[in-house]
């Protein structure tokens, strides 16, 4: 029982990441009708926003301390980050410690800008082209973004720690009456889950309860009619693309402490997120979120030793197997609607 709860919890954070990326992908599918293979790269750029901000905060200058000597007898060099000099040592230390959550603020404008540039500069020209062309051009873009990041940040994963407060683990089992230390769960993953829930809720509320969201939903259902009513639907869809980019980016920012960012993380997540979108049903936002969590949790269950002993290697392929079974039995996915992205 405890093992099951533990795996369930473990699945939540991965599922949250899948759900967030899949949500953005579905928004783009549903609004613009574009298959965006570069969406994983947006997730990666988000992660590297966190890396960049924590690097910026720890930019230091060196001073010599003549009173102390290092082991070679030279005056000791002391590195002081600029932020500590500007804001005082206490505030500076806090800033450095909280670099990852602060990177959210830093990432939002960057991601929206990246999204706008992508949509206006490239994807706009591909609306009327076949899906194959859209896949190929965004695939090329994904490679370009990935290689640029590799060029400037190197090929190795960069550790980006969470704030000190969240570094411990939470003893979840004691809440449910288990012995201590049976079900322990890192605080940061709880934070990630909560964060994902807030973002997902926010996106749904935005679409459901604002006039803007209503127009966008109408445009998703029938773009032409909305256009005929004199609404500039293209502009709204561009904004939705920026929003989707921001969602993927934020998912990446917060994921940085869980998985040290490296340049190919985007590709790894992209393939899985596509599978998630297909399982959830192309164009269905609730489907994407549900399938994200479902597959995240299934993946984590499949990596239990008991199940791996039963079917070796199942943890590596469970997501793909589920996707294949779903696509063959329910071709529209779990919550897909008739007539939406059937081809």
């Amino acid at each position: 029982m405890d093992a099951i709860i533990l795996q369930f919890l473990n699945g939540l954070d991965k599922g949250s990441a899948y759900a967030l990326i899949a949500l953005g992908l579905t928004l783009i599918f549903g609004t613009l009708g574009v298959v965006n293979f570069a969406h994983g790269a947006l997730f990666m750029i988000g992660s590297f926003c966190a890396v960049t901000l924590s690097k910026l905060f720890t930019l230091s200058f060196e001073t010599l301390d003549p009173t102390r000597k290092d082991f070679l007898g030279n005056p000791l060099k002391i590195k002081t980050p600029y932020v500590e000099q500007w804001f005082g040592p206490d505030t500076g230390a806090v800033l450095i410690d909280w670099a990852v959550p602060l990177a959210i603020l830093f990432a939002i404008p960057i991601m929206i800008a990246v999204g706008f540039i992508m949509e206006r500069g490239l994807i706009k020209h591909f609306y009327k082209r076949p899906h194959a062309d859209q896949i190929l051009v965004t695939f090329g873009l994904a490679i370009v973004l990935q290689e640029l990041v590799k060029h400037y940040y190197g090929a190795n994963p960069i550790q980006t720690p969470a704030p000190e407060v969240f570094r411990g683990s939470f003893d979840f089992g004691t809440l449910l009456g288990f012995d201590p230390n049976v079900i322990i769960y890192p605080y940061w993953r709880l934070v990630y889950f909560a964060f994902a829930a807030v973002i997902i809720g926010g996106v749904f509320a935005f679409l459901q309860f604002t006039t803007f969201g209503m127009v966008v939903r109408a445009g998703m259902a029938d773009r032409e009619t909305v256009g005929l009513l004199g609404i500039n639907i293209d502009k709204r869809f561009t904004i939705m693309f920026g929003l989707a980019a921001a969602v993927a980016g934020l998912a990446g920012v917060m994921y940085a402490p869980i998985n040290s960012p490296n340049y190919h993380m985007g590709m790894d997540f992209l393939v899985l997120s596509f599978v998630v979108v297909v399982v959830g049903g192309m164009g269905s936002l609730p489907g994407a979120v549900a399938a994200g969590f479902l597959l995240g949790i299934l993946e984590s269950f499949a990596s239990m030793n008991e199940i791996k002993g039963l079917i070796p290697g199942i943890d590596q392929i469970i997501i793909y197997v589920v996707a294949i079974v779903i696509l063959l039995t329910r071709p529209r996915g779990l919550m897909g609607r008739r007539g939406v992205m059937e081809e």
């Binding site: 896949i135 599978v275 793909y320």
Partner: peptide, 17 residues
Amino acid sequence: RRTGIYFSILTLAFAQM
């Protein structure tokens, strides 16, 4: 059994698998 992007994603899934 599927066409279009679904076919691409299915083959991609098989290859990754």
